[in-house]
Amino acid sequence: MQRVNMIMAESPGLITICLLGYLLSAECTVFLDHENANKILNRPKRYNSGKLEEFVQGNLERECMEEKCSFEEAREVFENTERTTEFWKQYVDGDQCESNPCLNGGSCKDDINSYECWCPFGFEGKNCELDVTCNIKNGRCEQFCKNSADNKVVCSCTEGYRLAENQKSCEPAVPFPCGRVSVSQTSKLTRAETVFPDVDYVNSTEAETILDNITQSTQSFNDFTRVVGGEDAKPGQFPWQVVLNGKVDAFCGGSIVNEKWIVTAAHCVETGVKITVVAGEHNIEETEHTEQKRNVIRIIPHHNYNAAINKYNHDIALLELDEPLVLNSYVTPICIADKEYTNIFLKFGSGYVSGWGRVFHKGRSALVLQYLRVPLVDRATCLRSTKFTIYNNMFCAGFHEGGRDSCQGDSGGPHVTEVEGTSFLTGIISWGEECAMKGKYGIYTKVSRYVNWIKEKTKLT
């Protein structure tokens, strides 16, 4: 034993070699072989497995989906700052455009905790909710729209109204504003409101030439003092309507412009014939205590009207009353817009006519005020429907199939267009061939041609 100890002390290297040989010859039971080890760690190889990531292109799944990435790591994937920024906006807080917040056709661009709407022409605001041009839906104005110097929408209202708090709607500024039905039992019968379409306001006024200088022999019209197929109006439903009495009662109609003036057809009036105007009328054979009678003290036909040349060209006249009318729910003026808007309103496509005229061709006159909704007829169809001249200051309205029309005794009465609950004068009943005849239409004086003249002559002093 002493000898062994001496050998170990003198030859430590020998001992180490012996131990190493023993270990190498022993069977290893701690580690699995290569094949079995792979069965336990069965993990798919990654895209760049075996390579240094710093030297390969980034992978979106590896960089940002398996674990949260930084902007720089995302930049490695896209290799483009702009594309990385677009991805980053949604990656950080989701897609803010998912709810489609942009209105009126706006395009949404996502941002971090926010979004941006790219608005089409005519709109602005956070969600493109603000109209900035009158060309689109009248700028959301209830009545009139004008573009300011910086191309912003400025709404306005006709006389007797003021802008509401929203700067879009119009509200009454006087007790009985024009064009409004205020009798409670008839307010439910107000005709369907007309909503502004998209309009090209630059070209809204037709490029028409008034044929002022045409000389033409007097034409022989049949029954051209021209509501057939209409309905009984309720008291106060058309408070701007008046009836004219002269040699015979209810020979023509008219509309209240203001307390002192009536507008009617020029062919209705004769110099030297006494005319009485009755406002607030409903049943011409009954006294309903809503009527107001006034005498006409002055007749002003349009300066281009000449019955000797043509009885229905420039067929418009103004009547001055001896005493002002007292405005109330049964006696209310009709609204008159400017030339541009009167023309736009007419193009809405349908209007209402009213009167006490004959209820059928050569038949009896109506006792109760009649009204009828009539569609506008395109000019080409209008011209083809008659052998008589249709001037540019006239328009056609009615039904091709016949059966409904204005008729004798309705002449001078109103053709009105309702705009968001307020009625505007767009025409004056003038003439036609018979009444409600198939293929024939009622012919009306186009008020847009005469609004400046009306307003100039009827100013209240």
Rank of each mutant, 00 (worst) to 15 (best):
V56K: 05
E171H: 07
H303E: 10
S11L: 11
I334A: 03
G105S: 15
G229A: 12
M6P: 05
N5L: 13
E72H: 09
G254L: 01
H361I: 09
V359A: 14
T386G: 08
I40N: 15
G363V: 07
V278R: 05
V174L: 07
G253P: 07
T158M: 13
D131W: 07
C155Y: 00
D95F: 10
F348R: 10
L367K: 15
F238E: 02
E72K: 12
R449W: 11
T218L: 08
V269D: 02
L425A: 01
S411L: 11
T445Y: 05
R379E: 08
T332C: 05
D378G: 09
I15Y: 05
C18Y: 04
I262H: 00
A337T: 03
K440V: 04
G398N: 03
F395C: 02
G427N: 00
N38P: 09
C170P: 00
C141P: 00
A233Y: 06
K387S: 07
L369C: 04
N393L: 02
V359R: 12
W118C: 14
E193M: 12
T225F: 07
C335W: 00
T386H: 11
L369V: 08
N245P: 01
N113V: 10
F424R: 01
L460I: 08
L372D: 14
K362N: 14
G421S: 05
H415Y: 08
V273T: 04
N306T: 03
I390S: 12
R364L: 08
D200Q: 07
N80I: 04
T422H: 03
C108N: 00
H34E: 08
P177V: 04
F424V: 01
Q219L: 06
D93H: 15
A308I: 06
V277Q: 00
I284P: 07
P239S: 02
A207P: 11
C117N: 02
K168Q: 12
I316M: 04
E73C: 03
R75C: 04
R191E: 13
V77E: 15
I214Q: 12
T16E: 04
R140S: 05
S99V: 14
T133I: 14
N245I: 03
C69R: 03
K168A: 14
D232P: 12
E270N: 04
E66Q: 08
N147P: 12
E193F: 10
S11F: 15
N258W: 01
G179K: 00
V374I: 09
F424N: 01
C157D: 00
R384F: 05
A397P: 01
N328Y: 00
C335N: 01
V368H: 14
Y91A: 14
N5R: 08
S114F: 06
S156P: 00
D150I: 10
L23W: 07
G106S: 04
E159V: 07
M394G: 04
Q2A: 15
A266N: 02
Q185F: 14
S385G: 09
I256G: 00
C102P: 01
D378Y: 03
S220K: 09
H289A: 07
L20A: 04
F87I: 10
G355T: 06
W240T: 01
I334S: 01
D378Q: 07
Y91L: 10
T290C: 05
G106I: 02
Q219E: 10
K89I: 06
W118M: 11
H415R: 01
M65S: 05
C134T: 03
S49N: 15
H303C: 03
S255R: 00
V269S: 03
F121Y: 13
E159M: 07
G246V: 03
I429D: 05
S169R: 09
K152T: 13
K188A: 13
E420P: 01
S448C: 03
L19M: 06
V326G: 05
E159C: 03
F55W: 09
K126S: 13
N306Q: 08
Q143Y: 02
G229T: 06
V77P: 15
R384P: 09
I429W: 12
F78C: 04
Q185H: 14
D33C: 03
T389R: 11
S99A: 15
D111T: 07
C268F: 01
D338Y: 03
P375V: 06
I454M: 07
E231G: 10
H361G: 08
T84I: 04
H303Q: 12
G355D: 03
G94R: 12
E418S: 15
C407H: 05
F224V: 10
W431D: 09
W240Q: 00
A233E: 04
F55N: 15
V269W: 03
C141F: 00
G179C: 01
Q2E: 08
L24G: 03
I210G: 12
E165L: 11
E288D: 13
Q237Y: 10
E142Y: 04
D95E: 10
D200R: 11
Y305V: 01
G246M: 03
G409L: 06
F424K: 00
N104G: 04
V77L: 12
I299S: 11
N147C: 07
V331T: 06
V174A: 08
E72L: 14
N127S: 11
R83C: 06
V195E: 13
K109D: 06
V183D: 07
M437P: 08
D110A: 15
A265E: 01
F196R: 09
Y201C: 07
F224T: 13
I112P: 09
C145E: 02
R358H: 15
C18V: 10
G58H: 12
S411N: 13
D95I: 09
K188D: 06
C128D: 02
M8I: 11
L460K: 13
F123N: 04
G355E: 04
V195S: 13
V416I: 08
C268S: 01
N306I: 05
D111S: 11
V257Q: 01
F251Q: 07
L24T: 05
L20M: 09
I112D: 14
P375C: 04
A9K: 08
V451A: 15
F123S: 05
E35F: 08
I214G: 06
K387D: 14
P333D: 00
P12V: 12
C128A: 02
N42T: 14
Q219G: 10
A308V: 11
V154H: 08
F176L: 07
S406F: 11
C69P: 04
K137A: 06
Y371G: 12
G13L: 14
E285I: 10
N222T: 07
Q216R: 06
T389Q: 12
V277M: 03
E61R: 09
Y312P: 03
F345G: 01
N5V: 12
N213G: 11
N203M: 07
A173D: 13
G421V: 03
G412L: 13
S107R: 13
E76F: 11
N147V: 10
W240A: 01
V154N: 08
R449K: 07
E98G: 11
K39H: 12
L211G: 13
S385Q: 14
V242P: 00
E288Q: 06
D110S: 15
W356A: 04
T290S: 09
N283H: 12
D93I: 12
T332A: 11
R140I: 13
